[in-house]
Design a protein around this nucleic acid. Structure first.
Length: 277
DNA sequence: GCCCAGGGATGCG
DNA sequence: CGCATCCATGGG
């Protein structure tokens, strides 16, 4: 795999460690669309258009530096996959999702998105987020940016209900009202323990959502978010029927260490895509 | 009608 | 701490 950066384009030749569909559909991002070989991806106030060809992928965007970092093109995923494939549980999952990359998405966007994600399904999460963007985000060049914190502070409880948030409306309203821009900026320089404690004190953020925010918004790969699918994965692999997510989180984080975040994504995509139990 | 979805808050022991 | 129960809502 070779990556070339041009003025308004990133070209990935022989993309052995990047697949657009896998990367977008593994549950880490909610603002995207795929239409055949063409995909649109949105992050914060930015947009990229991606074309997949037989032996190359092209990422077209006005902000090449942002999306080069966004897709984590500085990281060599072949080394990570080699390490993970030594684990007997993971081999199939890594081969199946060979082109997954963990996105470096916007922290505030991840906080809001994963509060909405709790006990929800991806289709409805996408609709709710689109509603917030189209009603509170800035419009540029025919698409809506993700709303800023200050823009969302204008949203009312009724607005969140209209966005389809259900009982998460009150939680998100409370979190938005207490958050400040400096909170969000300061979070980035804290250690893992401090980051976790701050996040879990936000309304609507429990252990799983906090770990998703850490993984996708703060680039922490040493956390293992356990949702309903990872719960199934754990019971499948260990031949158990537990629902104790704290225990599952402890055991999987301890097993995969600094590679926990990667392992989690390969497991999630493989099991969910194949509807395994 | 039931079950599920990238769970969290609350209360109880 | 661990555990049970309740919580909106749309789709299968």
């Amino acid at each position: 795999m070779k990556i070339v950066k041009e003025k308004n384009k990133i070209i990935i030749y022989n993309p052995t460690d990047f697949n657009v569909k896998q990367t977008l559909e593994c549950g880490q991002i909610f603002r995207f669309s795929i239409d055949g070989e063409r995909a649109l991806v949105y992050s914060k106030d930015k947009k990229a258009e991606i074309f997949t060809y037989p032996s190359k992928i092209e990422v077209l965007t006005d902000d090449v530096d942002y999306f080069y970092n966004f897709f984590d093109f500085n990281t060599d995923y072949s080394k990570i996959k080699d390490q993970l494939k030594c684990d007997e549980f993971l081999k199939k999952a890594v081969d199946y999702g060979y082109g997954i990359r963990i996105l470096k998405n916007d922290l505030f966007e991840m906080i809001v998105s994963f509060i909405i994600s709790a006990n929800n399904n991806i289709g409805r999460i996408k609709k709710s987020i689109e509603y917030l963007c189209s009603h509170f985000g800035e419009k540029n060049n025919g698409y809506y940016a993700f709303p800023t914190l200050d823009e969302l502070k204008c949203a009312t409880f009724i607005d969140y209900k209209n966005a389809g948030l259900g009982y998460r409306a009150e939680q998100l309203k409370e979190t938005i009202s207490t958050l400040t821009n400096s909170d969000i900026e300061n979070l980035k320089s804290l250690n893992l323990d401090e980051q976790f404690k701050f996040l879990i004190n936000l309304k609507g953020v429990g252990e799983k959502v906090a770990n998703c925010i850490l993984l996708f918004g703060l680039n922490r790969k040493d956390v293992f978010p356990v949702d309903t699918w990872i719960n199934k994965v754990y019971n499948h692999l260990t031949n158990t029927t537990t629902t104790n997510r704290k225990l599952i989180t402890r055991e999987l984080t301890s097993r995969y260490g600094n590679l926990s975040g990667y392992a989690q994504q390969y497991f999630f995509y493989y099991f969910r895509d194949n509807k395994l139990k």
